Simulated scan of single mutants.
Amino acid sequence: MSLPRHTAAGPAVGVRVDAGGRMGVGHAVRCLALTQEMRGRGVDVTVYGSLDVPWVRNGYERAGVPVESPGKILDATLTHVVIDGYDVPASLGESLRSNGIHVTALVDDAFGAHQIADLYVDQNYGAQPHIGGPAGSTALAGVPYALFRDEILAARSAEAHAADGVPRVLAVFGGTDPFGASDLLVPMLLDTGEPLQLLVLCPDPDRADHLRALPRAAGQEVEVVASVPDIAAAAAASDLAVSAAGSTVWELLTIGTPTAVVCVVDNQEPGYRATTDDGLVLPAGRLPALAAGDAAERSAAVAALRRLLTEPELRTSLRVGGMRLFDGRGRARVADAMGVRKPEGSA
């Protein structure tokens, strides 16, 4: 049975995305950035998905965006849909396009690229435009199309703090740390033996208690929190960060926070290789190898972390390079490529 053709008086955008559990928050956070851009253009946006992380859901609510169940998207009156999720079936994009709706798919290399869309966007460093979409489709790739939330852009514009004394370190492994990266990376930071003031984001209470109890050397302070009111501001106030090699890395580079990254899952491998090979970030290892007790992987990662803690000139170089590469205007470019303009008569 064919679906009714969708029409709308002006642009009306649906976003199909989820957050929470083992999928983390990266998909929903970059969609939030694009949503904020479209809301700034006076465009109506509705999210169709499960947002089980309170701060992510609150971000959409502050933007005035309702959240509906995924199944409702096929009955909505929409002109454009953004799909971001590796497990969303290609039949969704195909059905929407057959009813005259412009579909944008956010992808990461081959992950998510099965979707049937009019526009494919891969925001990752070193990405190549997707090949294999339907006839007439367009593909954008690379850092000019990186999507950043209002909070990231505000932190980028803030005056840089003067680094002095013991380095302030932010450790963040996705919004939920779904693979327990903090269990391995926090001990590695402490094993450098270098003084530090470490702030760890860890929403799991039992894991947080374990991290607080870890032995530490003189001059090492550790604070473990479930969340912070403004992660971007926390990053901007830090001398360096340790992060999973997902979309958070692009945010840290945009803000100008020198970063070491750990590759947590397979879909992060292309970005991990590209950014570490080109010296944009330092390598903190691959989580599966670290978890398996690979001594060489761990030793190399600890050495990289020690360099980041002890070499201010290196941190300055990483800060300048990251901010030069990411200009913060990617979300406007993607909205333009979607053809989403302010409705006629809007301010």
Rank of each mutant, 00 (worst) to 15 (best):
G136Q: 04
G136N: 04
G136E: 03
S137T: 14
T138C: 14
A139E: 03
A139L: 05
L140A: 14
A141E: 00
G142V: 08
G142K: 09
P144G: 12
Y145R: 11
Y145L: 11
Y145W: 13
A146Y: 00
A146H: 02
A146D: 05
L147V: 10
F148L: 15
F148Q: 11
R149C: 07
R149Q: 14
R149S: 11
D150C: 01
E151I: 01
E151C: 06
E151L: 07
L153V: 04
A155W: 02
A158F: 00
A160I: 01
A160P: 04
A163L: 09
A163P: 15
A163T: 13
D164F: 02
D164Q: 13
G165V: 09
G165M: 08
V166I: 14
V166E: 01
V166K: 03
R168D: 02
R168V: 00
L170Y: 02
A171I: 15
A171W: 06
A171D: 06
A171H: 08
V172Q: 03
F173A: 07
G174V: 14
G174Q: 13
G174L: 14
G174S: 14
G174T: 13
G175A: 11
G175C: 10
D177V: 08
P178H: 10
F179E: 11
G180Y: 05
G180C: 07
